[in-house]
Design a protein around this nucleic acid. Structure first.
Lengths: 209, 209
DNA sequence: CACAAGCGGACGGCATCCGTCCGATTACCC
DNA sequence: GGGTAATCGGACGGATGCCGTCCGCTTGTG
């Protein structure tokens, strides 16, 4: 959780409020997505809306800052997975983690789904870094022969969103960890050798240059 | 598309407007979900809001009627799948169809995800009927030995929501039919014999009695 | 202890939505 | 073809929600 405060000349209460705002924003976008009201965030942080705008200038800026933190955590996890001795273990762990992160924060899920590319240069940089790690994870698993050949790294990313909305269906309740069953089934379907050939075009990449 | 008009004594223009409203509502909730404004629906139908309320009494009533139609279509597809000679083919076709239906109508996806049970007795009846067909589809596939034993019929329902939000992730674009790749991978993961055991509790059922 | 920095939340302005109501229009029956 | 009752469109009142500012009061700090 990035809490270093970039404005060291501020008073102690201001720093404290800044932190509370970040924490509250994290929780708010996790639960309700990016469409949170300034008032909700401020209330949850125990401050007035004025303080939010004084500390961050814009609601937008606050959200950007928090989302960037989430991306950085994602990168950390990904690099841990890359260090696993078994390529398949590393890949599956990553997919499970990314799926979990998406589920843990609706706001994060909304940002990774943005089809017009990242909103800020910082986010674009993290996106590319994440893509690179996923490519390496996938290459390793392909080389080891544990991942079916027709599954691309882009499929891996797409599939890690599959557990997003799988809590209920037609009266069935998957329970709090039900999404893990879905991801497990998916991963089994990805193991080499594949059985049903994947048809249609592979997912395409828009690299933000 | 259910268009029989339940109020035969009405004038021709009234019947026509009623139909237009139903069509417009279908398209509106497909694209934007259940949270559509009366004005949007009326505009798309080429009528005034007054007509909407005159024909259906409530926005709620109009939505209910349209959703019920979607459920009935779902039931028809399901029963077609049940008639396929190969149990595995029938099951996979159903999962693909249900996933597609969820994707085709955001409104339908919102209704099937309702965790507090169906809102109307009519919907509850359709829900149970659908569950019954899925149970039979699953039993057949289990009996034939083509579906791994630890996948339950409830898993089938849950998994048919997995393709709901899989269009983009971190700059990757799955394309218009990309979701089919996800479902295909899932179905491969469901084939007997399973490889990674499914842990955790099975999805639970809330039968609306 | 003085005072600058910081605080809370009321506020004006804007957008959206619901469901009603009424003057104008039109389908249908004779 | 004409009279009439059914129907229509959309303006409207009332309600809600959100943004970002502004100002009188509070508080940390040198």
């Amino acid at each position: 959780m990035p809490d270093l405060d970039p404005v060291p000349g501020t008073r102690a209460d201001a720093r404290h409020n800044r932190r509370q705002l970040i924490i509250a924003t994290r929780e708010a976008i996790a639960a309700r997505g990016l469409d949170v009201s300034s008032l909700d965030i401020a209330k949850a942080a125990g401050v007035g809306v004025g303080t939010l705008y004084r500390r961050f200038g814009t609601k937008e800026a606050l959200l950007d800052y928090v989302v960037l933190g989430l991306y950085d955590e994602l990168l950390d996890t990904a690099e841990v997975c890359l260090k696993r001795p078994d390529p398949w273990d590393g890949l599956t762990e990553f997919v499970m983690d990314l799926a979990g992160a998406h589920r843990d924060s609706r706001g994060l899920a909304e940002v990774t789904a943005a089809c017009d590319g990242p909103s800020s240069p910082e986010l674009a940089q993290r996106t590319i870094a994440l893509q690179d790690v996923v490519i390496r994870l996938t290459d390793r698993a392909h080389a080891a022969g544990s991942l079916r050949a027709d599954v691309t790294w882009a499929d891996i990313l797409i599939c890690s969103r599959a557990a997003l909305d799988t809590d209920h269906c037609l009266g069935v309740d998957a329970g709090p960890d039900g999404w893990r069953r879905v991801v497990t089934i998916l991963l089994d379907g990805m193991r080499a050798p594949g059985r049903t050939p994947l048809e249609g075009p592979e997912p395409q990449v828009h690299r933000a240059e």
